[in-house]
Design a protein around this nucleic acid. Structure first.
Lengths: 373, 373
DNA sequence: CGTTAGCACTCTCGCACTGAGAGTGCTAAT
DNA sequence: ATTAGCACTCTCAGTGCGAGAGTGCTAACG
């Protein structure tokens, strides 16, 4: 009946009333819309349930507290609000937030001052690829004032570009793999017998020539009749490459825990839930199938989240990257009572920025790799 | 007068009374020692100030609560204990903890069951170097039941082993540096003019031949009369290598926040202090000068810490690595009221384990680098 | 007929108060 | 030297209470 999840308004500036059809079967008047909007904003800001009197005192409305009470009662029966106690104000339900995000909220562009500052920070570390993700997490946490999560950009599928084998000890060597998308992995190799650097280097050169541009599965297919050290190394290359494609391998950076842990709802055990979510790779593998890549900023509120641990959280996510080729994911995590407008603005801008950076690196050069050594 | 900081007992098993000389100018009887030990243990476990009566009820001692009161009073005047309120028991001071750690505590070896489990986990990821540090942080946090910090092993000084330049776009290239200690760094290069992959590869080959084995400063010295792209690349190599030597570049992994944030002393703003410490590189640069490398597990309690943000924390640290050549740092962070014995055992074992792993990689092959390509 | 003021009622929250429990120092007896 | 006893202090949990805020209902109003 109602949409479980929808893309956020992508038009900066005014709230959009277009496509209200999804909610149109619910009777909700303009005035109720206005009141709902105020309640969400107020509750997000204060964290305390909001009542009719408080609204009339804080805002100049054309009608009185009693009227608001009536409207609030109706909003409650329609499922947009709920009252925690008989007295003491009301708070939005997940549906209330959803309606707010979908139809009432504004998510303007980030102030140009912020944009300039952020771009400046990125220019500082532009050269060091390793720092991009870290910086993105930090900046996103700061602008959204929430916990941010960012993954490194990943190719849809890893292909070998270069490898080196470095002898460390007679029976120990280090295999360095570089993929076409500039990911680097180091793998330790233990030989059953002594191996000299010379033969290892030759082996490496051979393998580069033979395996360049191949995926993990294709490398696996090349094992063929290879034997001994050569076979062993090829197997390792294959498994490392396929490992890179696995979702579980993706590391999430996060930042800004302090923005959220100090909020009242995270006083007790709730903070543990948050840390748990951020720790394992579970968050990612739960979220990924929900994301239609390239579809802009997506918002998950409370029960809309795929796992029950996230039931009390709001998640604002976007993918970034170039086409379907290389992509990462970034977003913001907070209590359902979070500032969705600001979060969406921040996430949208950061996704845009990171896409730009990544496309500088990888854009339009997917197939001209074999040209030179 | 009193030592500000001392190495922890490194003899597994019994507490050591040797070298008590440092504290010997303070009059403290055997019975007081026993009482102090009990108080620290009790307080660490319960988190509540401990009183005389509670001790007699919990333990079978040869004397009564009144006697304990007398001894506790004396311990307080000597600075080992302090009472937070007129009534309500006493808690150890920093000095009390220090005495406990130095002379009263046992830090036995980790149970062999734990050791086996840990080694098993490491065997699983042995091949993936990137995962060692991560796993070390996780395991350390688990065994010490506290927040762990681990840095990746770093060479004392980075020397170039290999480099590659990969053309991404006409004016954009990626420089991949590999140091002799197998660290890999990726640097983006923007050219003022178009450059073909062919010339870049030749440039890279040239530079490898010329710069292999050199440190950042030495590379800097080789700039000489080089011009154009060549000069630009050399400069970047030099600055990246020197950057690797900088302490600020070191990344700390941490794990186990949940072990500590749920404890009573971190209910409020204190948690923010902890997150702050773990965030920036400040922690490391403050701690490093305090550490005599290779001297085993070191313990810093409260005011013994170099920075004031750490005043309410206890820190148990050890370096690991091979000789003075390659080293990292790992340890545990917690409230001053932490289980020092368990922490020291865990840190000691993990340092030992990581040293073993690192020495497999880097051991005794510091100077035979130029032999082959 | 929608809107609003008024009213009685409910619930939370902060505050003061209280008694139990625990700890302390002191002293006199052992 | 050790200890039992005692008077005193302080914390903490529980209780009661009043203020404040919110609610639903109803009657009056434009």
């Amino acid at each position: 009946m109602l949409p479980r999840r929808r893309r956020a308004s992508s038009a900066p500036g005014e709230a959009e009333w277009i496509d209200g059809g999804a909610f149109s079967d619910v009777a909700i008047t303009d005035r109720q819309r206005g009141i709902l909007k105020l309640i969400v904003q107020e509750y997000v800001q204060s964290g305390r349930p909001v009542g009719s009197k408080a609204l009339t005192e804080k805002y100049v409305l054309g009608y009185s507290a009693a009227t608001i009470r009536g409207e609030m009662a109706e909003l409650e029966t329609n499922g947009f609000l709920q009252s925690l106690h008989t007295s003491g104000g009301r708070v939005p339900t997940d549906l209330g937030y959803r309606y707010f995000v979908h139809l009432l909220m504004e998510a303007p562009e980030l102030p140009s001052g912020d944009q300039i500052m952020i771009r400046h920070q990125f220019r500082q570390v532009e050269a060091q690829l390793e720092q991009w993700v870290e910086l993105a997490a930090i900046v996103l946490a700061e602008t959204a004032k929430s916990v941010s999560v960012v993954t490194a950009p990943r190719p849809a599928i890893a292909r070998l570009r270069h490898l080196e084998i470095i002898s460390l000890q007679p029976r120990l060597a280090l295999l360095i793999l570089v993929t076409q998308d500039s990911m680097v992995r180091q793998v330790m190799l233990r030989w059953p017998e002594d191996a000299a650097q010379g033969s290892l280097s030759r082996l490496a050169d051979d393998l580069v020539d033979e395996l360049r541009g191949l995926t993990g599965n294709e490398v696996q297919g090349r094992i063929g009749s290879a034997t001994g050290a050569r076979r062993f190394v090829i197997e390792r290359i294959a498994s490392t490459l396929t490992g890179l494609d696995a979702v579980e391998q993706v590391e999430i950076r996060h930042s800004g825990l302090e923005n959220v842990l100090t909020q009242p709802e995270f006083a007790g055990a709730e903070s543990q839930a948050l840390l748990e979510i951020l720790r394992g790779g579970g968050f990612l593998s739960a979220m990924l199938p929900q994301l239609e890549s390239g579809s802009g900023v997506q918002v998950f509120i409370g029960d809309e989240n795929p796992t029950s641990e996230l039931r009390r959280f709001g998640v604002v996510l976007a993918t970034y990257g170039v086409g379907g080729e290389v992509s990462g994911l970034l977003g913001v995590l907070g209590p359902t009572r979070m500032a969705y407008g600001r979060s969406i603005s921040s996430v949208r801008y950061m996704a845009h920025l990171m896409s730009g950076l990544v496309s500088d690196l990888y854009g339009g050069r997917i197939d001209d790799q074999r040209s030179e050594t």
